[in-house]
Simulated assay, not measured.
Amino acid sequence: MASPSLKSPAGPRLVLDVANSSGLDDWAPELQKTKVYERILLDLILGELQAGSRLDEQFLAARYEAGLAGVRDALGRLALEGLVMRRARSGTTVAPLDLVELRQGYEARVLIEPHCAALAARNASKAEAQAMFDIFADGEEAARICDLPALVAMDLRFHAAVARASGNLALARILIPLQHKAARFWVFSFNGASEQELIEEIEEHREVARVIGGGDVEASRQAMLRILDVQPEAQGRA
């Protein structure tokens, strides 16, 4: 599967394939509000829409070439995820970067995401595991030129795919918004990262897909812990 193209509004669009993580038909990937949601989400993560800035619906509709209804639906979903704040009379603003919230979200991910990977090893089909692996088909090229939007999109799609493959929709609905919040901080790790460091991180993700495809429950859990920078034995002592 070819890696999607991704640039901010004027350029080619990345398809993140994360909005349908709710499992609800009214957020199907082909709907305009889903596409708008994913484009706003990406710009929030990349800092194109800066923390604390006010989001004007007319401006967003023009920016993303979308209708106001789609923009409002997208902002409503992002508000539920805690990525934007909507207040009567003061409008919608981008949520601040909260380090306490980041730490708490990370602690939740350490508990949930390795378990989702283990469930995926039990429940995912070979095709689903291969699709996870193929998300990074253009990973080396993106790392070579440090294509931040493409790397972020690959990461979001991968983690959403693992969450969905767990077969536990309740866990996926909790986990994916936590990943979105964490990604706003994760992009800063690209500053100064070498091509080799980026490739090594991509390989860690591919290893998760490999062991999920092999049906190895414990190896899948441990591989996801490594992505989260947690040593499995350390978690066992916690």
Rank of each mutant, 00 (worst) to 15 (best):
L80Y: 01
A131Y: 04
L46T: 03
E30C: 00
R39K: 11
T93D: 01
L119S: 00
A118K: 07
A209G: 02
E195M: 06
A117Y: 04
L228H: 13
L198P: 09
E195Y: 10
K33F: 11
C116I: 03
D229N: 11
K35N: 10
W186Y: 00
E65K: 15
L78T: 03
D138N: 14
Q196A: 15
E101V: 03
N123K: 12
Y64N: 01
R173F: 06
R164W: 04
P9H: 14
A120P: 13
A108H: 04
A120R: 03
L75H: 10
R184N: 06
N168M: 11
D134I: 01
A124G: 01
V187G: 05
E203P: 06
P177F: 00
L42D: 03
A142R: 09
L75G: 00
A153Y: 02
L75I: 07
E57Q: 08
A88R: 06
N20K: 07
K181H: 07
M224A: 09
L78K: 03
A19P: 02
G47L: 00
L148H: 08
P232L: 06
H180G: 01
F136D: 08
L55E: 11
M85A: 14
I174R: 11
H159Y: 12
A193W: 00
N191S: 14
L24D: 13
E128M: 10
G23N: 14
D56V: 12
A182H: 04
R54F: 09
R77V: 04
E203G: 11
E197I: 04
A74K: 02
V100T: 14
E140H: 10
I112P: 00
A183K: 09
L169W: 11
E101I: 05
P9V: 07
A193I: 04
V71M: 11
S5G: 11
F158M: 13
R221N: 03
I176H: 12
D98H: 05
E128G: 09
L225V: 07
E48H: 13
R63V: 01
D56N: 15
G192V: 04
E140G: 05
L68Q: 09
F136V: 04
I174Y: 04
E204C: 07
Y106N: 07
V15E: 15
E218A: 02
L55D: 00
A95K: 09
L16P: 02
L99C: 10
E141R: 15
I112S: 05
Q50C: 02
G215I: 06
L228R: 05
L175C: 12
A161N: 03
P232H: 12
E200P: 10
G52K: 06
F190E: 05
R210I: 06
L75A: 00
R13Q: 15
L119A: 00
R54K: 15
E128N: 01
A182Q: 03
L151S: 05
G47A: 11
G52F: 08
G23H: 08
C146T: 08
A137W: 09
S53M: 13
L178C: 03
R237T: 15
L178E: 06
A121E: 06
D216L: 00
A153E: 06
F188W: 02
L42N: 02
M1E: 09
E195R: 13
Y106G: 00
Q130F: 01
L24Y: 07
E204N: 12
V100D: 15
K181F: 06
G192H: 08
L171I: 03
E57T: 08
L78H: 07
N20G: 14
T34N: 11
A51E: 15
R144T: 15
A170E: 10
G214T: 05
R221S: 10
